[in-house]
Amino acid sequence: MQTNTTIFKILKKADFLLLGALLLFAFAGSILLARAQKAPGETVRVTVDGEVYGEYPLSQDAEIFLPPTNDSSADGFHGENVIVIAGGEVRMREADCKNQVCVRTGSISRPGQTIVCLPHRVVVTILKGEEVLDAVTH
């Protein structure tokens, strides 16, 4: 009881202003982004190290195997990833990275959604055909 009241007492006006500003920032963004994501996705783009590795139609089931590379250039070693397109959805089925964030991301199907494997610098993005972010900014 005592501690609860002190917690609320210590909060200041600036805290609430900042909270409000941050919430507004997040919600405004999510509304804009949700609008951009409404249309169903069409193309799956896979990039490795920021370079396009391949583009695949979302409507066609496929399995994309990214083999491990071991080139000793600046970017070094990449592990292996298995991307699966099935039933209009994409997911990362396997990755031999430590954190497995990409695998746990699950399936994506709408434009702008991404699966990222940071350790391997692999990004799977769904595109609408035109660049999705342009639709947001314009």
Binding site: S30, L33, G50, V123
Partner: peptide
Amino acid sequence: VQNVNLLFYYPVLV
């Protein structure tokens, strides 16, 4: 990863 589409994730992170 050189990909601006990650920006879609910012509301969640905020």
